[in-house]
Simulated scan of single mutants.
Amino acid sequence: MTAHSIEGKTVIIAGGAKNLGGLIARDLAGHGAKAIAIHYNSAASEAAAEETVAAVKAAGARAAAFQADLTTAGAVEKLFADAVAAFGRPDIAINTVGKVLKKPILDISEAEYDEMSAVNAKSAFFFLKEAGRHLNDDGAIVTLVTSLLGAFTPFYASYAGTKAPVEHFTRAAAKEFGERGISVNAIGPGPMDTPFFYGQESPEAQAYHKSAAALSKFSKTGLTDIEDIVPYVRFLVSEGWWMTGQTILVNGGYTTK
Rank of each mutant, 00 (worst) to 15 (best):
M116D: 01
A35H: 01
G74L: 01
A151Y: 05
L135K: 02
A68H: 05
K34A: 13
A213N: 04
A75T: 00
K122Y: 02
D107F: 12
Q200A: 08
E204M: 02
F196H: 13
P195T: 04
A86Y: 12
V76M: 10
F152I: 15
T194F: 07
I226P: 08
K257C: 15
N251R: 02
A111K: 13
L236P: 09
A207D: 02
G21M: 07
D138W: 11
K210W: 00
T255W: 07
D114M: 03
A75V: 04
K220T: 14
P191Y: 04
Y254I: 07
S158P: 10
F155S: 12
G8R: 02
D91L: 07
H39S: 00
L128F: 09
H39A: 04
M243C: 14
T244R: 09
G16M: 01
A17D: 06
T255Y: 09
E50K: 13
T255P: 06
V145A: 08
K103T: 07
A14C: 11
H39C: 03
H209I: 10
L28V: 04
A65H: 09
G181L: 04
F197H: 04
F177M: 05
L249D: 11
D228S: 13
D228Q: 11
N41G: 15
K163Y: 08
V237L: 08
W242T: 15
N136I: 10
D27Q: 14
A17H: 05
S211Q: 09
L223P: 10
Y208D: 15
T162P: 00
F66I: 02
A86Q: 09
A81R: 08
V166D: 00
